[in-house]
Design a protein around this nucleic acid. Structure first.
Lengths: 331, 331
DNA sequence: GCAGGCGATTGAATCGTTTTAACGCAGTGG
DNA sequence: CCACTGCGTTAAAACGATTCAATCGCCTGC
């Protein structure tokens, strides 16, 4: 910056002003400064910038699983929202592993990011509090922990679970199975509880729970195989999968075992990722507005950043929607 | 850090040493320092760290399309590779838009990241040169530009194109269509050229090119509809899609139009993303070792970072592999 | 007992920017 | 003619860490 200043025949302070407070600099000087910047190919050092400014404009985000299109959709919504303020997004992937989640929180804490969007896996309440006390605004995405303290944007998982289950019951299915996990994750628990509640309310039927450690297609396959190994009388006639990746895995295992979908076993997924519609048997699924969720979370986060003290804790709950396709209502 | 120093009864310099050069500090003092850090919940300010150090340990990456599982797989490989050195990854998504790509390059340039992995969209050669001159090491992923100057890790797109095309020809298909684009992208051009070359070598057959602006399912659908609107005699009997997302879109459009796959029209995709196998008609595809590619690019990048001057430009080319499924060889 | 050497610690300078308070200068009103 | 205002500019002090050279003990060998 000193070089730029020298070349433009001004002091470094003026260069800084030309960049950050253009109104404080006369048009003529501003022009000269910009010319010098262009000639020298100057790019400001953001480390120094941040150090002095005391704040990093970037926002950090930790998603559960980048391999899941649902989360990349959420991330796209976030990216769009941030782009409007020209704030960079630093995206981290925990892959459902608390250790990696923690590593990203370390990084964001060191970076003093101004905001954090997170779908927590591990026990991070303490960390989040510390971040908040350090001045990083936090919004929870698709998950609530310490609801009292942090704003959140979620989808009504119970409602989604109810929609899916009532749909299966209405089709005459009674022996339901829920595949997915771990149950420690709120989303999973809520969807499962809602399924059980819907069955209870209906008066007949049962829900068997097959817990998995992850929520990918492999988990769906092993979950389904487990169910297929049951005696015929106990075998479910419908499977509600915790998400679409699991549902696709279930579908693969059933197809391989020559079980007819939906005739023998119906399948409902969750998320309605794009690939659900083009699956071997197009998947019925509980649609979550992923991109909207990302945008909503970002909007809320930016509000809090703009006025950290004034804003109270809010919880935005978006509504899921059942999309019926062949895997439950097939020919 | 001053507070930590005071609490541990040492000078700030010693705290710094305890953190960065533990061997320079006696075990007893090191212990005291760490205790003080824990008690005070000290987290170092990475802006100051970087400013003084002059280098940012982070590595930046710009991918073409996070919505494409292929790229998230590559990113996972990169993340794993970097994790071994404890380097953070800053992931940016250009979404095939040069403007957004450019914005991320600005960010990485300001941040003085030590390395950059990029699958370029726009004309960024000049930018890359400047970054390199500033000390940021660059490795191209899945693309070569200015081959003379920058190391790259790619998959042999021509070979992939040849494999797919020869497969279709061997099945007796002659009226081929290639769907995807823009042709400005090297990958697309190489795959297309290889297809044409294979047809020429075979002596009979033709390749019609349907260019699209993006490479997602929507593009595949419109591309396929365009082909279906041709007079029956010109309609292709096989479609080679530039990637699996496009292939899935093509498949959807054909299914909707009640065209039998593969009987009337066979489909081959590219990438072999996980979802290809579980599609309505399981997709034949040219498999790219995405995760390996990410890892290889990272390994190479870290080598260059370790010894920026000593290492020469290298080009790692990974081999693709044809995976045959129902969409070409169906029952 | 002393010179010399060695390891642990520290004071002070430094990284590149932003910010604050002060400065010079021209115009204005009393 | 002076005091004052307002504008554009600048010198210098931060920001929070790292690093280099210097210092301080302490031990060893003669």
């Amino acid at each position: 910056m000193r070089d730029v200043a020298a070349r433009a025949g001004v002091s470094p302070a003026t260069v800084s002003n030309a960049l950050n407070h253009p109104d404080k600099v006369s048009p003529a000087t501003r022009e000269r400064v910009h010319a010098a910047i262009a000639e020298l190919g100057f790019v400001r050092n953001s480390a120094a910038h941040q150090l002095r400014r005391g704040t990093n404009r970037a926002v950090g985000m930790v998603v559960l699983d980048v391999a899941n299109p649902f989360f990349t959709d959420v991330a796209r919504g976030v990216e769009d929202g941030l782009a409007e303020q020209g704030r960079p997004l630093i995206l981290g992937n925990s892959g459902q592993e608390p250790i990696r989640e923690s590593a990203y929180l370390d990084l964001f804490e060191e970076q003093r990011v101004s905001g954090l969007l997170i779908t927590p896996v591990g026990d991070v309440l303490g960390r989040l509090r510390r971040l908040r006390d350090r001045g990083t605004c936090v919004v929870l995405v698709d998950r609530r922990v310490g609801v009292k303290e942090f704003s959140s944007v979620t989808v009504d998982d119970r409602r989604g679970g109810r929609l899916a289950t009532e749909h299966l019951l209405a089709l005459g299915r009674r022996r339901l199975a829920f595949v997915g996990g771990p149950v420690r994750l709120n989303q999973v628990r809520h969807r499962l509880e809602a399924a059980r509640a819907a069955v209870d309310a209906h008066g007949s039927g049962e829900v068997r729970y097959v817990e998995t450690t992850t929520m990918d297609a492999a988990a769906g396959r092993t979950g389904a195989e487990q169910l297929l190994s049951l005696p015929a009388a106990e075998r479910p006639d419908a499977i509600f999968a915790a998400n679409d990746l699991v549902a696709l895995g279930v579908l693969q295992a059933l197809t391989r075992a020559r079980v007819a979908v939906p005739d023998d076993i119906a399948i409902v997924g969750f998320d309605d990722i794009d690939f659900a519609a083009s699956a071997a048997v197009p998947l019925s699924s509980v649609r979550q507005p992923a991109v909207d969720m990302g945008r909503a979370a970002t909007t809320r986060l930016l509000e809090i950043i703009a006025d950290p003290t004034g804003s109270s804790v809010t919880h935005t709950v978006l509504e899921p929607e059942l999309v019926v396709r062949d895997s439950t209502a097939g020919a």
